[in-house]
């Protein structure tokens, strides 16, 4: 554990809770892509199956359980409890366009040809692109509420901080995980456009609006 990794994890947890709290307190899922949230739930379920057979640390186990339960709760709030507020008409990104390529990539790039390793690789690739339905929705509606922007910023920062963590680990421990690093870089690049808008608009007190 190093500072970058810890800050990345804190940022990740913060993102998850910002989103849950926003939906819960406004009693509304407006502007949130349910499809992205389903993809994140698939990511956590596929990656954290190792909960059943490997123990790394209490911290690790607690975080894994937290991500699984929080993402399931988010999906439940969007599709069941506050279904009436969910903006399904604007949430039209075809998730098979990210599910199928992630699965194919997992069959090509993995550390061993076992079910759990394939699921792990699949989850890494899927996580990189799971935010696309949400970014697509923001582009389609042309704007995002400030809390949604904070959520996206925290979620994007998490993988960016992990990149610093990987650089640090490479030099201090010789640890190098090419699959996670490549996917993590792609994931961070996807947020770059959003980061720019966040800094130039949201941080200056304006609403995030995308030009047509």
């Amino acid at each position: 554990m190093n500072l970058f990794r810890l800050m990345g994890d804190v940022s990740h947890v913060l993102a998850v809770f910002i989103l849950l709290a926003k939906i819960w307190r406004t009693r509304s899922a407006a502007g949130i892509s349910g499809r992205s949230q389903i993809l994140f739930t698939i990511v956590y379920l596929a990656r954290y199956m190792d909960l059943f057979f490997s123990f790394i640390s209490l911290y690790n186990t607690v975080m894994k359980l937290l991500f699984i339960s929080a993402s399931c709760a988010t999906v439940y709030l969007i599709y069941f409890k506050f279904r009436a507020t969910y903006d399904g008409n604007h949430d039209t990104f075809r998730i098979e366009f990210v599910l199928v390529p992630s699965l194919l990539l997992a069959f090509i790039f993995h550390y061993s040809m076992s079910f759990f390793e394939l699921a792990w690789s699949f989850s890494i690739f899927l996580e990189a692109v799971a935010i696309l339905p949400q970014l697509f929705m923001v582009t389609k509606t042309g704007e995002a509420e400030n809390i949604t922007s904070h959520y996206l910023f925290a979620l994007g920062s998490y993988r960016a901080l992990y990149i610093l963590n990987w650089i640090y680990r490479y030099y201090t421990e010789g640890h190098f995980d090419p699959i996670a690093v490549c996917a993590g870089i792609v994931q961070t690049i996807l947020y770059c456009d959003f980061f720019y808008l966040y800094v130039t608009k949201v941080l200056q007190g304006r609403k995030l609006q995308v030009l047509p």
Binding site: H12, W120, F176
Partner: peptide, 10 residues
Amino acid sequence: TLPSEAHDEL
């Protein structure tokens, strides 16, 4: 060690 032996990150 191969990363697959320890997916110690989240």
